[in-house]
Computed example of a mutant assay.
Amino acid sequence: MPAAIIIAIIDDDQDLRESLQDLLETEGLESRLYASAEEFIGRNGHKEVDCILADVRMSGMSGIELLRVLGGKDRCPPVLIMTAYADNGMRATALRAGAAGFLAKPIDTMQLIECIRGCVG
């Protein structure tokens, strides 16, 4: 049996983290929840997951800053950025910083699953 695909969900909104976790479980995907980019980095979360789903605007480090930090690490999984502020400028900034995908909130669940499957094969 193939190993489970594990997704990190990094968002300061607990309800959103948990609802995304429930959604991913229905698709057969596991997830790890982090309330902040700092918590994710502090736990070396990038070593335990196959894909990262991170919000742009969080208290503390932003999702864009997280992308920049992760860019300097060995074996960084693909990062999908999500935001309620999904304008073309934010999209361009995220993609330039290395995001594998960009999702507008509220999250289109089919688009999210397609992005994850596209990133992790």
Rank of each mutant, 00 (worst) to 15 (best):
R68N: 13
A37N: 03
F40I: 09
E25A: 15
C51F: 02
L67D: 12
S31C: 15
A4E: 04
V69S: 10
L29I: 10
V49E: 12
R57T: 12
I5N: 06
D13M: 02
L67M: 14
Y34M: 05
D11S: 01
V49P: 11
I7Q: 04
L67Q: 14
E27K: 15
D22L: 08
T26I: 12
S59H: 10
A54D: 08
I10N: 04
G28H: 07
G60P: 06
L29H: 05
V69A: 13
L29T: 10
E25V: 06
A37C: 12
A37F: 02
H46N: 11
L24T: 02
I9V: 13
D22H: 09
R32C: 15
D12N: 04
I5D: 05
G60I: 01
E65I: 03
R68Y: 10
D12K: 00
C51L: 05
I7T: 10
E48C: 06
D55N: 12
K47M: 15
S19C: 07
E65P: 10
V56T: 11
G60M: 05
E38C: 04
L53H: 06
L70Q: 14
D12I: 00
I5H: 07
D50V: 06
S36H: 04
A8Y: 03
I41Y: 14
S31T: 06
A37I: 00
I10E: 05
M58V: 01
D55V: 00
E39D: 15
D22Y: 09
E38L: 03
I64S: 14
D22G: 08
D11V: 01
E38D: 13
S59T: 04
E39R: 07
D50Y: 07
I41N: 07
I6E: 11
L53C: 09
M61T: 08
E48N: 13
S36P: 12
A4P: 13
R17W: 00
L33I: 02
L33Y: 00
G63H: 06
D50F: 07
I6L: 12
L29C: 08
D12M: 00
I52G: 07
L53G: 09
L67F: 14
V69H: 13
G28Y: 15
A37L: 02
N44E: 11
D22T: 05
E18K: 06
L70T: 09
S59G: 13
I10H: 02
R57Y: 14
S62Y: 12
I52R: 04
I41A: 13
Y34C: 04
E48P: 05
I52C: 08
L53S: 05
L23W: 08
D11I: 00
I9Y: 01
Q14V: 12
G60E: 02
L70C: 10
S31V: 03
N44Q: 14
I6Q: 10
L16V: 02
I9S: 03
